[in-house]
Amino acid sequence: MGLPDDYRAMARIRRFEERLAALKDAGEIPGSIHLCNGQEAIPVGASRALRDGDHVTATYRGHGWAIARGVDLAALYAEMMGRDSALCGGRAASPYLSDPARWFVGENSIVGAGVPIACGAALSAQRTGSGAVSVVSIGDGAMNQGNVHEALNMAAVLDLPLVLVVENNVYSEMSRISDMVRVRQLAERAPAYGVPGHTVDGNDPDAVYEAVAEAVDRAREGSGPSIVEAMTERLVGHYSGDAQHYRPAGEIAAARLREPLARVRAAAAADAELTARLDAIDAEVTAEIEAAVTAARAVPTPDPATAKEHVYV
């Protein structure tokens, strides 16, 4: 992918999330939502290293990963509106959606729970000899969860084709990660499992791609898991309604100068032709998003008689 293509992919995620927030404010989205504004370069760069059949597991902040893996935008909006979507029939909403057709194992709201789930996908790939890789994204706070350590140890011992992407946005909900750990970078923990660990600029899709591609190649050849820590910053609160009172004055404004889309715009500022191309991409993406919202609104609500379907306990 070239710069315009990466920009389009990141802009689709950004505009999707911004429109989602507006729909939430308008009362069209039930429940809370967790946006990934500012982190778009990570799923875009990582997905470039993947192929059909590779599985992705995400956190509740996983809309960007779903979009980067090709999940339909209208279906995503319909799901989050609680409509009878082609994804999960309105049962998953924002934090639990999945799409097996796009190898998106899905989200969950238990911090770090995606890692043992992704280990299952990796174990399946290893046992069937499919050559697939399982990629799982977690936040920085999840690196302190016991199930993450257990799953990483298992993946290392069994040489599972797993790639752990730590989206280090500096904050674990409302607490700075630097107040919670003694290591400078979370990737420094990798040697404890006997696996490689790399820290990269998470606002640069090329840097993310190169690190994830190396980890994916290693996993495919049977050499086991890797950890890629992508440094980034949230431009929004932890969840819808988060006033971010815990963030120092000026921090968010400074982050807006470093975020992925602003970085591309700054690099293109002296190139009138490229700037015009980016403007056109923004217009095209906005139209695509609006079309997806219109299509989602046309999806009917679920039949209440089906409420007990897919319940196994």
Rank of each mutant, 00 (worst) to 15 (best):
A213T: 07
V163F: 13
A266K: 14
A243S: 10
A74K: 02
Y60G: 06
I29T: 02
R19M: 06
P191Q: 07
L3G: 08
L158K: 10
G70P: 02
A287Q: 11
G197H: 12
L235I: 05
R256I: 05
G202Q: 05
W65G: 00
M143G: 05
S98K: 08
A41C: 04
L3R: 02
A255D: 10
Y193F: 15
A21M: 14
R297I: 04
Y239A: 13
P95W: 00
V228P: 11
V56D: 05
G224T: 11
S124L: 13
R51M: 11
I177G: 02
A101G: 09
G38E: 09
A46K: 01
H310N: 14
A9S: 15
A254Q: 14
A291H: 11
M154I: 03
I110A: 11
L164P: 04
D52S: 13
L164K: 09
L235D: 06
T128I: 13
N147D: 05
N108I: 01
T59W: 04
H310T: 13
G202S: 07
P300D: 01
G31Q: 04
D159T: 10
R91G: 06
Q39G: 04
V313W: 12
G146R: 12
Q126S: 15
R102L: 02
I33H: 08
L23I: 06
A298S: 14
Y246R: 07
I177K: 03
Y246A: 07
L257Q: 15
Y239I: 04
